[in-house]
């Protein structure tokens, strides 16, 4: 024992490595992945409870597929216009970035408007969250997605003000990049919603 030389930790990092600018994108991606798990749990809940109608209305009676298709196209269009904003940012064209972000915001607002119309219709029909387990899980899942879109819109407006006042400085470019990931991520979640909740629900 005594002959052993202490080999313990041979070095300590006294300074952190320099983080390259891109690490914000990685960190934000980690957040999105955790958000993805939230939606996975909500989808699982809907999958388990989605057929428990408690004698109440069924998806086929409630959902209006043409309206959902319109809603889906709004979100998809907002995805491509955000893509154009990203391209304009790469080219350093500030006015074009603001324009495309504005159009993205309008499509996002249209999505939320249609969703609110649908929700008002459901409440009017008595299909409130407390009616059945199916409706509880439906409102939780779709409502959580809608809330995400709402906060995305708030973020978008704040970002447009920042870009308009400070220009396409590096910090703003990073923010536009993060919101881009957030916005496209919400569209990915919506694919799951319109497939598993609306299409397969009506099919059942």
């Amino acid at each position: 024992m005594s002959a052993m030389t202490p080999i313990g930790p041979s070095f300590y990092l006294t300074e952190e490595d320099h983080h390259p600018e891109g690490s914000t994108a990685l960190g934000f991606w980690m957040y999105l992945m955790s958000d993805c798990l939230i939606f996975a749990v909500l989808f699982a809940t809907y999958g388990v409870l989605g057929t428990a109608y408690a004698g109440g209305p069924t998806p086929a009676e409630l959902f209006d597929l043409p309206l959902v298709a319109l809603n889906t196209s709004m979100l998809l269009l907002s995805s491509i216009t955000y893509g154009f904003a990203m391209i304009a940012m790469g080219e350093g064209r500030q006015r074009a970035v603001l324009g495309w972000l504005g159009i993205t915001g309008l499509f996002g607002a249209a999505f939320l408007g249609i969703e609110m119309y649908e929700f008002a219709h459901l409440i009017h029909e008595g299909a409130t969250p407390q009616r059945s387990a199916f409706l509880s899980s439906f409102w939780t899942l779709v409502g959580t997605h809608g809330l995400h879109v709402f906060f995305g819109l708030v973020w978008l407006v704040v970002l447009m003000v920042q870009v308009a006042r400070r220009g396409l400085i590096e910090a703003n470019q990073r923010r536009v990049q993060c919101l881009s990931m957030f916005w496209h991520f919400l569209d990915v979640v919506w694919i799951g919603v319109f497939t598993f909740v609306y299409l397969l629900g009506v099919l059942r």
Partner: peptide, 18 residues
Amino acid sequence: SGEAHGTRRDYLIGFGLS
């Protein structure tokens, strides 16, 4: 910095497929 950006063509292909 290692972050990838799409080209206009990428976005249009993605949009068409979607």
